[in-house]
Design a protein around this nucleic acid. Structure first.
Length: 889
RNA sequence: GGUCGCGUAGCUCAGCGGUAGAGCACUCGCUUCACACGCGAGUGGUCGCUGGUUCGAUCCCAGCCGCGACCACCA
């Protein structure tokens, strides 16, 4: 044994222990066991660790470390994501700050080169932080979504889906981000309520009044789009407008004629019942326009500034005007024309880019789409059939809800950082989709019948999530046939947050089932959201963001990990607070000190496993019994993703059972026992500590290794120890020890309540105790003496006068003192016990008094109640006798 | 509008059909030879409200009240 210092210096020990562990190579798959794989959700390569990462990483690490103990061949695959928009945004911002030329001025290749440079400089932060957290990731096979292999996988997937018609190019409305000047997917749009206005404009009938109607009033929250109106729609059943259908109105400002059409889309109950149709700038209008072949008039450029062209007939004065400026101009001009028909304040849902924060503009552009509807079919089926299971199961509903209504996935981005779309165009625009330019050229040569042509590659890149969707198999080497896929696919668990189900989980399901013909993972564990100590969602604007590394600095990774695990319940978010982390730091110290106690008593971990059934002392049998139950509870917790239960089991056992009772009860044995008893107790204390360390290691990998290293005198390396599974159980020993525990607690409680001085030693008198109790009292005498400050246990048929009395497990005990210290307090104490017993008795009797209870409740429940009546009435009788004797003084 | 979740001790949360639990906080006592990041003893809850099912409900069902999340939205 090496001396454990007085305290555990996490700042010194954790990095040292991690390095040693990493160096050992044990993070890579070991042995011949059943394979078990988890692929980490790839963090942004240039990102840093936030609390969500800390939680998810901790839980995955617990799963992996636990499975290694069970002898599984574990692969925890590491990798990072190129995070297209996010990364490009950061680099552009940095260039602007340094007053460097804009990316467009330096050109695509130079810009992409700059991003790679930036990755080289700032990448690696998150890896360092994951290491500090103790993540036992297999760094040796780390991947990056834009590395050679994964890029090849992306190209192959694109080409195959293209050839199958599941990827196609289409001109339709997309969510356009005017800041980044790219299309984004529906998921990247955040709809937020904002205070807006709804204006009403009158469009005059072009051919004069119909009856007494001379205009039609439309409502809009976006006046600037009226310049692109192609029609006004009314509901076919709307009596008010029946005669107007087919007539023309004169569109003000633009001064064009547009028709009044009938369509089911307008709601006659809402507003005027007439809707302006701007096919090129509104998703609903787009559908209406397409149905009626209404022209779609594009009003804006890529930065969402108005454009005036001969085609769109927008007045020249609008050219180059920002859309919100144009809105003011339109409103003013309508008023000037006398066509304003009022304006109301209105809360409207406005779409914002989740990264850029600017208002998204629906734009009519050519983009690449994935036919998600088709790919979703097997992905839905896989979850329905249970091939892939969500934990907690409720999340499958969220998954179905989205998958059942899935829209085409827009995968092209007008960015430079990312996987370039593998399509090349010929001079006449003919596309050639191929994994490599040389293949495209060959196809072109064939297409143009030998004519040599120059091809131009599509300038767009793919949505970041496109490459992420391939993650579970691309990281394992696909499309090459690799042994990793043979062994580890499908992976066991994917652990992630709920907000990524659509972005990522669903898309992995679709891609994996299409290309691997099997689910990517058997379980999708959806972890909670980490909130601040007040249950508030963390956000930069609120200033309540917790940096997990600060906790690591102050307390170490172990307490943070334990706090996260202990709070990782299912179906509820968790609140992370400093006091909680601090509490588990205290727990770590408690364990540390228990180990120090063992060292002082020269109790090492020997690696020798005693057969618990050969143990003589009830204390030791009990310890083995409880340790087995603890290990079982921890295993069951981890297996069921109940990390809270697992953490609680090891915490309670370590502190409440092992430290509070086992060690304390062992002290008298170690001091006064026979050599055999001492040897046995030492052995069991050491073995139990080993079981604690092994069971705790998934959650607190650092302190457990440090203690083991210092205490171990056997030959086994810590990582070679298997899970401390044991089916040993000894209810008789448990009962005996629990009786001693209850008695000691009762004596302590009684002493305190009647103000017996702490230092005073009392003798204990068992009144009329039955034989078995008397035997147990003899056996536990030294423990009771030491822990309850009792000197001498005797027996009597009658309690002496002037003694403090209490009842434990049906036996009356007396603590004779020279004078009852505090007669009033003693009376009050007895009264309190009497009230409690009366309450319990009344409750049980009440139940038994109900004949329907006796008739209908299960017999064992009825028997239990009968036993309770007996127990409490006996106790009551004894307590009342005690009180009477006290009163007689 | 649809879907999901949550209201249990001062705080953060377990439990979920048969005697209300944990951690932290709080009160009192203790330099007891592993540990004051500790030890011992306590205080604290009509388990959101109202009905229903049941011998029995914090737990199941319905409605309501309050809070939150996600999705979709009326121009």
């Amino acid at each position: 044994m090496q001396d454990l210092p007085k305290t555990f210096d996490h700042a010194e020990a954790e990095p040292r222990l991690y390095q040693a562990h990493e160096k050992s190579g044990l993070f890579a798959p070991q042995g011949e066991g059943d394979p078990y794989a988890i692929v980490i959700p790839p963090p942004n390569v240039t990102g840093s660790l936030h609390v969500g990462h800390a939680l998810n990483t901790t839980l995955q690490d617990i799963l992996c470390r636990f499975r290694r103990r069970q002898g599984r061949r574990v692969l925890w695959q590491f990798g990072t994501d190129h995070a297209g928009i996010a990364t490009q945004m950061v680099v552009e911002r940095q260039m602007a700050e340094r007053q460097e030329p804009h990316r467009r001025d330096i050109g695509r290749d130079a810009f992409v080169e700059k991003v790679w440079q930036w990755k080289a400089e700032s990448g690696g932060t998150i890896e360092k932080q994951l290491r500090r957290l103790g993540a036992s990731l297999d760094w040796s096979r780390g991947r990056f979504t834009m590395d050679e292999g994964l890029s090849a996988a992306v190209r192959k997937v694109f080409v195959e889906l293209y050839n199958e018609g599941l990827i196609y190019r289409d001109k339709r409305l997309v969510n356009w981000d005017p800041k980044f000047q790219t299309a984004i997917s529906d998921l990247e749009v955040e709809n937020t309520e904002v205070n807006g206005h709804m204006w009403r404009f009158a469009y005059p009938l072009a051919d004069g009044p119909v009856g007494d109607i001379k205009e039609i009033v439309i409502a809009t929250t976006r006046p600037e789009t009226m310049l692109g109106d192609g029609a006004v729609a009314v509901h076919p059943g709307d009596e008010r407008y029946k005669d107007l259908i087919g007539k023309m109105v004169r569109l003000p400002i633009a001064d064009r004629l547009i028709p009044i059409i009938a369509d089911e889309y307008p709601d006659p109950e809402f507003g005027s019942g007439a809707v302006k149709i701007t096919g090129a700038h509104d998703f609903n209008d787009f559908e209406v326009a397409r149905r009626h072949d209404i022209p779609m008039i594009v009003l804006m450029d890529e930065e969402a500034r108005m454009i005036a062209t001969p085609e769109n007939q927008v007045p020249e004065r609008y050219h180059g005007v920002d859309r919100f400026e144009a809105r003011k101009m339109v409103v003013a001009e309508i008023e000037e024309l006398g066509l304003g028909r009022g304006v109301d304040d209105k809360v409207i849902m406005q779409p914002f880019g989740d990264r850029s924060g600017v208002v998204i503009e629906p734009m009519l552009t050519d983009q690449w789409y994935v036919d998600a509807k088709t790919l979703a079919v097997p992905a839905i089926e896989a979850v329905k059939s249970g091939k892939t299971q969500f934990v907690p199961a409720n999340w499958s509903k969220t998954y179905f809800q989205w998958m059942d209504n899935i829209e085409p996935w827009c995968i092209s981005r007008q960015l430079w950082w990312g996987h370039r779309i593998p399509v090349w165009y010929g001079p006449d625009g003919t596309p050639f989709c191929a994994e490599h330019e040389s293949d495209a050229l060959r196809m072109a040569t064939e297409h143009y019948e030998g004519e040599s042509v120059t091809l131009v590659q599509d300038s767009d890149v793919l949505d970041t999530w496109f490459s992420s969707a391939l993650w579970p198999f691309s990281t394992l080497g696909w499309p090459e046939e690799t042994s990793e896929q043979q062994e580890f696919y499908p992976t066991a668990v994917l652990s992630t947050a709920f907000d990524i189900i659509f972005f990522w989980v669903a898309r992995m399901m679709m891609m994996a089932l299409h290309f691997k013909k099997d689910v990517p993972f058997e379980t999708v564990y959806i972890h909670a959201l980490v909130r601040d100590e007040n249950g508030q969602k963390m956000s930069k604007s609120k200033g309540n963001v917790i940096d997990p590394m600060e906790f690591v600095d102050e307390f170490g990774a172990d307490p943070l990990r334990f706090a996260l695990a202990a709070q990782a319940t299912q179906g509820r978010d968790l609140s992370l607070s400093k006091s909680r982390v601090e509490g588990y730091r205290n727990f770590r110290t408690k364990l540390w000190n228990a180990a120090r106690f063992l060292q002082i008593r020269e109790i090492p971990i020997t690696g020798v496993k005693t057969d618990p059934s050969t143990l003589k002392l009830p204390l030791n049998r009990w310890m083995a019994h409880e340790a087995a139950a603890m290990a079982k509870a921890v295993a069951e917790g981890v297996e069921a993703f109940r990390f809270d239960d697992a953490a609680s089991a090891v915490y309670q056992f370590t502190w409440r059972t092992y430290c509070d009772w086992c060690i304390e009860l062992a002290k008298p044995v170690l001091d006064d026992g026979t050599p055999d008893e001492i040897a046995e107790t030492k052995a069991v204390l050491g073995e139990t500590l080993e079981a604690i360390l092994v069971a705790l290691e998934p959650m607190m990998p650092f302190v457990s290794r440090e203690i083991y290293a210092a205490m171990n005198e056997g030959s086994a390396a810590f990582d070679d120890l298997g899970w401390p599974a044991s089916d040993f159980s000894d209810p008789a020993a448990a009962t005996e020890m629990e009786m001693a525990v209850a008695l000691i607690s009762e004596i302590r409680s009684t002493r305190t309540e009647v103000n017996v001085p702490v230092a005073a030693k009392l003798s204990l008198l068992a009144v009329g105790a039955p034989r078995d109790v008397r035997d147990q009292l003899v056996a536990q005498a030294s423990a009771i003496g030491r822990m309850a400050r009792i000197e001498g246990i005797t027996h009597a048929d009658e309690p002496p006068k002037g003694a403090i009395q209490f009842v434990s497990e049906g036996v009356t005990y007396a603590l004779p003192v020279a004078d009852v210290i505090d007669l009033g307090a003693e009376m009050a104490r007895l009264d309190k016990d009497i009230t409690t017993a009366q309450g319990q008795l009344k409750k049980a009797e009440g139940k038994l008094g109900n004949e329907r209870f006796v008739a209908k409740a299960p017999p064992e429940v009825v028997a239990e109640e009968r036993a309770r009546v007996t127990k409490f009435s006996e106790e009551l009788k004894q307590l009342e006798a005690a009180k009477a004797r006290l009163a007689a003084l």
